[in-house]
Amino acid sequence: MSAPNKSYDPVEVEALKPEAIERMRDQALAAIAAAADLDALTHVKTAHTGGTSPLALANREIGALPPHAKADAGKRVGQARGAVNQALAARQTELEAERDARVLAEETVDVTLPYDRRPAGARHPLTTLSDRIEDIFVAMGYEVAEGPEIEAEWFNFDALNFPPDHPARGPQDTFFVQDTEDPAALEESGVVLRTHTSPVQVRSLVTRDLPVYVICPGRVYRPDALDATHTPVFHQVELLAVDEGLTMADLKGTLDHMVVSLFGEGMTTRLRPNHFPFTEPSAEMDMLCYVCRGESVGNPDRPCRTCASEGWIELGGCGMVNPKVLIACGVDPEKYSGFAFGFGIERMLMFRHNVEDMRDIVEGDVRFTLPFGMEI
């Protein structure tokens, strides 16, 4: 039986020679230093510290050495692998710092710039105001009614007690729709662009069961020149209530509730006698000046430009529904009564927001609509 080979020198194993281990270490360190980014460093780490890396294979050779030789060989390999791992960690820290600095430079955000280059939109204030008025009356139990903008003369005039020779039925106040090639037959076409939303009230009485409580907003047309206070296309809102026992007191209470809802507490209305074909008795509706609340009347120290120091602002027309209109719509005036009123939404918008020129409302400039925002 032979004795153990105590004279075996581990440096004679090629992979465990000091110069071989140093070469493996230096190659690994050079590759680590040359890694330009984290992806390249990952490949270097696999090549020089993985299970098939030169140092890992050399480490396996230690197991075949005699016990007294393993310590020295393990120390040399361990020191080399430690140097490589230390270099890897240092290089990874450097590359991560470079990456973070680059990301901050490339993806920096200037928080002072607009967050959205696409400008924000806004609802047109006429739409917003019309919706608000509708909400006020829907909350009171009214329904929103609509009708055609191209209307028959019967609905626009005859059913509303406009006689055939009434000035409003002339071309100076009404757009007639020509349905023939003969210009002379224009006024005989019997079709007009509605001059008010009252035809919607007539249609409501004809088609709905009584009682009727409707609010009628919409576009209307009149041959007016466009200026600071007039436009040929504008918006009206009219209200109709027909039921048993309605009086002017109900009309007055409804008007007061409307102006309070639109302009705030303390607002009220007054009625001045007037004449309209479709109401009897009829009245002009004024509301308390929303700026001075009547305090400018007789007070030279506090003049009010809004109401010209009169204390009241004219809003629109109103009155009890004329019995002739009820009869034309098939309603018994002995049993039912009703009230109605109407006003221009543009005029109301000018009051509420101090708009001085109606052309600003209709010209479509976004600089006018944007300050009103997106109220819903």
Rank of each mutant, 00 (worst) to 15 (best):
A185C: 02
A185H: 13
A185Y: 02
E187I: 07
E187R: 15
E188P: 00
S189K: 05
G190P: 11
G190M: 08
V191F: 12
V191R: 15
V192I: 13
L193C: 04
L193Y: 06
L193A: 06
T195F: 08
T195L: 05
T195V: 07
T195R: 01
T197E: 07
T197Q: 10
T197M: 10
Q201M: 08
R203C: 11
R203G: 08
S204A: 15
R208M: 12
R208G: 01
L210G: 01
P211S: 00
V212M: 07
V212D: 00
Y213Q: 13
Y213R: 15
Y213D: 10
V214Q: 11
V214C: 13
I215F: 10
I215H: 07
I215E: 06
C216W: 04
G218T: 10
G218Q: 13
R219F: 01
R219C: 01
R219I: 06
R219H: 05
V220F: 03
V220P: 01
Y221H: 12
P223H: 04
D224L: 04
D224A: 13
A225Q: 14
L226W: 02
D227H: 11
A228S: 14
A228T: 13
T229E: 06
T229D: 08
H230N: 05
P232W: 08
V233A: 10
V233G: 00
F234E: 07
H235G: 02
H235A: 02
Q236W: 04
Q236Y: 07
V237C: 05
V237L: 14
L239P: 05
L239A: 14
L239I: 13
L239C: 12
L240R: 02
L240Y: 05
L240H: 06
A241Y: 01
V242W: 10
D243P: 00
E244G: 00
E244N: 04
E244Y: 00
E244W: 02
G245E: 12
T247S: 15
